[in-house]
Design a protein around this nucleic acid. Structure first.
Length: 116
DNA sequence: TCGATGACTGATG
DNA sequence: CCATCAGCCATCG
Protein backbone atom coordinates (compact mmCIF):
# COMPACT_ATOMS: atom_id res chain seq x y z
CA UNK A 1 0.00 0.00 0.00
CA UNK A 2 1.12 3.52 -0.52
CA UNK A 3 2.41 4.00 2.96
CA UNK A 4 4.90 6.79 3.32
CA UNK A 5 8.14 5.86 5.00
CA UNK A 6 7.90 5.23 8.67
CA UNK A 7 9.75 7.88 10.62
CA UNK A 8 12.95 6.69 12.32
CA UNK A 9 11.26 7.31 15.63
CA UNK A 10 8.26 5.17 14.71
CA UNK A 11 10.59 2.35 13.67
CA UNK A 12 12.18 2.45 17.09
CA UNK A 13 8.78 2.35 18.78
CA UNK A 14 7.82 -0.68 16.72
CA UNK A 15 10.93 -2.59 17.79
CA UNK A 16 10.64 -1.68 21.45
CA UNK A 17 7.04 -2.87 21.44
CA UNK A 18 8.29 -6.34 20.51
CA UNK A 19 10.53 -6.85 23.53
CA UNK A 20 8.86 -9.71 25.45
CA UNK A 21 7.89 -9.43 29.09
CA UNK A 22 10.65 -10.74 31.30
CA UNK A 23 13.38 -9.66 28.89
CA UNK A 24 15.52 -6.58 28.24
CA UNK A 25 17.44 -5.07 25.34
CA UNK A 26 19.84 -2.17 24.88
CA UNK A 27 19.61 1.22 23.19
CA UNK A 28 22.24 0.20 20.66
CA UNK A 29 20.58 -3.11 19.86
CA UNK A 30 17.19 -1.47 19.34
CA UNK A 31 18.80 1.03 16.99
CA UNK A 32 20.34 -1.82 15.00
CA UNK A 33 17.09 -3.76 14.77
CA UNK A 34 15.31 -0.60 13.64
CA UNK A 35 17.82 -0.23 10.83
CA UNK A 36 19.49 2.76 12.47
CA UNK A 37 22.98 1.54 13.45
CA UNK A 38 25.06 3.91 15.53
CA UNK A 39 22.07 5.80 16.85
CA UNK A 40 21.72 4.51 20.39
CA UNK A 41 21.31 8.05 21.66
CA UNK A 42 18.49 8.60 19.26
CA UNK A 43 16.69 5.62 20.78
CA UNK A 44 16.75 7.25 24.20
CA UNK A 45 15.31 10.39 22.68
CA UNK A 46 12.61 8.44 20.87
CA UNK A 47 11.55 6.79 24.11
CA UNK A 48 11.37 10.11 25.87
CA UNK A 49 9.16 11.47 23.08
CA UNK A 50 6.91 8.43 22.81
CA UNK A 51 3.20 9.13 23.42
CA UNK A 52 1.94 7.48 26.60
CA UNK A 53 -0.92 6.00 24.59
CA UNK A 54 1.53 3.66 22.92
CA UNK A 55 2.12 1.93 26.24
CA UNK A 56 5.65 1.01 25.22
CA UNK A 57 7.66 -1.29 27.52
CA UNK A 58 10.36 1.41 27.76
CA UNK A 59 11.60 -0.09 31.02
CA UNK A 60 12.91 -3.11 29.11
CA UNK A 61 15.54 -0.92 27.45
CA UNK A 62 18.79 -0.50 29.39
CA UNK A 63 22.37 0.28 28.37
CA UNK A 64 24.84 -2.10 26.76
CA UNK A 65 26.45 -2.75 30.13
CA UNK A 66 23.21 -4.12 31.50
CA UNK A 67 22.53 -1.09 33.70
CA UNK A 68 19.59 1.26 34.03
CA UNK A 69 20.59 4.47 32.29
CA UNK A 70 19.05 6.90 34.79
CA UNK A 71 20.95 8.11 37.84
CA UNK A 72 20.14 6.00 40.91
CA UNK A 73 18.65 9.00 42.62
CA UNK A 74 16.06 9.79 39.95
CA UNK A 75 12.39 8.80 40.19
CA UNK A 76 12.78 7.28 36.74
CA UNK A 77 15.41 4.90 38.05
CA UNK A 78 13.12 3.69 40.83
CA UNK A 79 10.17 3.30 38.51
CA UNK A 80 12.17 1.34 35.95
CA UNK A 81 13.61 -0.97 38.58
CA UNK A 82 10.17 -1.68 39.99
CA UNK A 83 8.67 -2.39 36.60
CA UNK A 84 11.49 -4.81 35.79
CA UNK A 85 11.13 -6.60 39.09
CA UNK A 86 7.38 -6.80 38.62
CA UNK A 87 8.05 -9.08 35.67
CA UNK A 88 10.47 -11.29 37.53
CA UNK A 89 13.66 -9.63 36.28
CA UNK A 90 16.35 -9.46 38.96
CA UNK A 91 17.89 -6.01 39.40
CA UNK A 92 20.83 -5.31 41.70
CA UNK A 93 22.22 -1.79 42.06
CA UNK A 94 20.44 -0.92 38.83
CA UNK A 95 22.07 -3.84 37.09
CA UNK A 96 20.50 -6.70 35.14
CA UNK A 97 22.28 -9.89 34.12
CA UNK A 98 22.23 -9.76 30.33
CA UNK A 99 23.30 -13.38 29.95
CA UNK A 100 20.04 -14.30 31.61
CA UNK A 101 17.52 -11.71 30.45
CA UNK A 102 18.67 -10.26 27.14
CA UNK A 103 16.11 -10.56 24.38
CA UNK A 104 17.25 -12.82 21.55
CA UNK A 105 14.88 -11.98 18.69
CA UNK A 106 14.75 -14.44 15.82
CA UNK A 107 14.70 -13.19 12.26
CA UNK A 108 11.36 -14.77 11.39
CA UNK A 109 9.58 -13.01 14.23
CA UNK A 110 10.98 -9.64 13.23
CA UNK A 111 10.30 -10.04 9.54
CA UNK A 112 6.63 -10.74 10.15
CA UNK A 113 6.12 -8.34 13.02
CA UNK A 114 7.79 -5.21 11.69
CA UNK A 115 6.13 -3.06 9.01
CA UNK A 116 9.47 -2.21 7.40
C1' DT B 1 27.46 27.60 11.86
C1' DC B 2 28.98 26.62 16.54
C1' DG B 3 28.95 24.65 20.85
C1' DA B 4 26.42 22.18 24.40
C1' DT B 5 23.67 18.28 25.64
C1' DG B 6 22.21 13.47 26.51
C1' DA B 7 17.52 7.37 28.93
C1' DC B 8 24.75 5.71 24.50
C1' DT B 9 29.18 2.70 23.40
C1' DG B 10 33.46 0.44 23.12
C1' DA B 11 38.19 0.67 24.45
C1' DT B 12 41.45 1.35 28.01
C1' DG B 13 43.87 1.42 32.47
C1' DC C 1 34.39 -4.31 38.33
C1' DC C 2 34.81 0.73 38.16
C1' DA C 3 36.06 5.24 36.14
C1' DT C 4 37.47 7.83 32.28
C1' DC C 5 37.51 9.10 27.57
C1' DA C 6 36.95 9.81 22.89
C1' DG C 7 33.58 9.00 19.39
C1' DC C 8 28.91 9.17 18.24
C1' DC C 9 24.64 11.83 16.35
C1' DA C 10 20.12 14.39 16.39
C1' DT C 11 18.40 18.43 18.56
C1' DC C 12 18.53 23.07 20.40
C1' DG C 13 19.71 27.87 21.45
Amino acid sequence: MNQTQLSPMAKIWHVVALIPEGHVSSYGKIADLAGLPGRARYVSRALKMAPDALQLPWHRVINSQGKIAFPETSPHFIEQMQKLRSEAIEVNRGRVKLSKYEWQPDLATLVFALPF
